Simulated assay, not measured.
Amino acid sequence: MTTSAPDTVLITTSAPRRPSHPHSGRRGRFEPYVLIAPTVLLVLGLMVIPIIIVIVYSLFDNVVTNQNPQFVGFANYVTILTDPNFWNAVSNTLIFTVASVVIHMIIGVAFALMLNSKLVHALPGRSSARSTSCRGSSRHPWSPSCGGCCLDPSGVINYVLTTLGALQEAVPWLATPATALLAVTVINIWSGYPFFMISLLAGLQGVPTDLYEAARVDGAGLIRQFFSVTLPALRPVLYSMALLDLLWTTQQFTLIWATTGGGPINHTEVVSTYTYKLAFNSYQFSLASTSAVVILVASLFVAIFYVRQQKKASQF
């Protein structure tokens, strides 16, 4: 007679659960808001509240020099929009901005293509050549002050041109009404193109080489490859860079103020220097606030267009 071993039953017991703290769930809900609170406070203190104050100032007469400012509604806007000096500043800003953006793109594409060419690829130290070119162009000496020194009557530009016989005598480029706007535009172009060159070079690195090989098989030359392959591939980068450059250049102040101060005879006056002079030269703070609001509204349209372009690009 055989006896079987009794069945064994394994009973697993889990560790007792600790009772959750009654406030742990509430703490978890509020933790994200606590983390973003410093950023929200900075944005409110440095952007939102100052913008609201400027908008309110634009609706009163002179709010700083007048102890009892009076509400004038949109009278300041009528004054600004009918001021010939304001429209002269707008005209100079448009010329300065459009010329800078277009030539930034042209020079940036040209230098990016050069650094991405087969000639640079064939160099023994091509990585060193690229990095040296990018670092050197980003540290070139064309700051506003140095640019003003180079365009001085006794500066490098006049010395070279008079030595070569292109000029009979030195020209005060920044003090001559006919050349002042051109001079500050050249300084802005030269000081800003390295950023666009580096960004476009990064965009070129992302273009598949198969597209160029297929274009060569179809008989496309270098020019055809540029317009059919390179430009379409760089279009999202070009759109983004152009819109950002448009925003940055329209708000350019340091360059103009350090070189010409808006002169001579308002020939380089832009909207930023126009607003600054209203506030701190004429002490018309309400009119300066009004001009700032007009600039803000114009910049918002460009910013909205930029955001829409970015959303379209992200969908592809």
Rank of each mutant, 00 (worst) to 15 (best):
E269A: 14
E269I: 07
V270Y: 03
V270A: 05
V270N: 11
V270P: 12
V271D: 00
V271C: 00
S272D: 12
S272H: 05
S272F: 02
S272A: 15
S272C: 10
T273E: 06
T273M: 09
T273D: 08
T273A: 10
Y274C: 02
Y274T: 05
Y274P: 01
Y274A: 02
T275W: 04
T275C: 10
T275N: 10
T275Q: 12
T275V: 13
Y276E: 07
Y276H: 11
K277Q: 14
K277L: 13
K277A: 14
K277F: 11
K277I: 03
L278H: 00
L278C: 01
L278M: 06
L278P: 01
L278Q: 02
A279M: 10
A279C: 09
A279D: 08
F280G: 08
F280K: 04
F280W: 15
F280A: 10
N281T: 14
N281H: 13
N281L: 14
N281D: 15
S282Y: 15
S282P: 06
S282C: 06
S282T: 14
Y283Q: 15
Y283S: 12
Y283L: 13
Y283V: 07
Q284S: 14
Q284C: 06
Q284F: 10
F285R: 04
F285H: 15
F285E: 08
F285T: 12
S286W: 05
S286A: 13
S286Q: 11
S286K: 05
S286I: 11
L287S: 12
L287I: 10
L287N: 08
L287M: 12
A288N: 05
A288V: 07
S289F: 01
S289T: 02
T290M: 06
T290D: 02
T290P: 06
T290W: 01
S291K: 00
S291Y: 05
S291H: 02
S291I: 00
S291T: 09
V293C: 10
V293H: 05
V293L: 03
V293N: 03
V294R: 00
V294A: 01
V294N: 01
V294D: 03
V294Q: 01
I295D: 04
I295N: 12
L296M: 12
L296G: 03
L296A: 09
L296I: 04
V297S: 09
V297E: 07
V297P: 08
A298I: 15
A298D: 05
A298E: 05
A298W: 10
S299N: 15
S299E: 12
